[in-house]
């Protein structure tokens, strides 16, 4: 199982991608499966470690939270750009992260960058410190607490 399908998630995602881009038929299912398995095997040569997802439920909750947050921060940033107030101050925040798992970190970086208003700049693996740029920085402590309680806890639960 693990030797034949080293990256089941990658293969499954590729198969879904193939079926999305073509019309569903038996021929495409077979062809897509073959390509997905071959690509998964090739990917195993590049990246042997598979991400280990312990629990799926925290990820689903995270998806909902992030979706809401993106809508809210979209509105906030759009308003800030439009009003162009001088009261807004942007700045850098250094946040110590407890997450160590590479896939969890990748997911966190995607969340933070996709949300308008925060930009992931730099991460130092030995010390686990993340350098974040925040568009509307009122209180650095507030951002630290937000990331720790809102995203990091759920990611720790999901990736263990």
């Amino acid at each position: 199982m693990t030797r034949l399908i080293p990256h089941p998630l990658v293969s499954l995602a590729l198969l879904l991608l193939w079926l999305l881009l073509t019309r569903f038929s038996l021929g495409h299912l077979v062809l897509g499966t073959a390509i997905a398995l071959a690509a998964g095997a090739a990917f195993a040569r590049l990246e042997p470690a598979t991400p280990r997802i312990r629990r799926i439920w925290p990820l689903v909750r995270l998806l909902g939270i992030v979706g809401l947050d993106i809508i809210r921060s979209n509105a906030a940033v759009a308003w800030l750009i439009l009003s162009g107030s001088n009261a807004r101050r942007s700045g850098f925040v250094e946040i110590p992260l407890r997450l160590k798992d590479p896939s969890a970190l990748a997911l966190l970086s995607m969340i933070l960058t996709a949300t308008p208003g925060t930009a992931w700049l730099e991460y130092d693996p030995p010390s686990g410190i993340l350098l974040l740029h925040v568009f509307d920085l009122k209180d650095p402590e507030e951002w630290m607490a937000l990331i720790r309680d809102r995203y990091e806890t759920l990611l720790m639960e999901a990736f263990g």
Binding site: I70, I71, N74, V77, A78, I81, G84, S90, F92, T113, A114, T115, P116, G117, T118, A119, H133, F135
Partner: peptide
């Protein structure tokens, strides 16, 4: 895109395109 033109520092401008790429 308007923010890209209007904002003054580069680190501010890096937030602007995410409006277009998210919602």
């Amino acid at each position: 895109a308007f923010g890209l033109v209007r904002l003054r520092s580069f680190y501010d401008r890096i937030h602007a395109p995410t409006l277009g790429t998210s919602w």
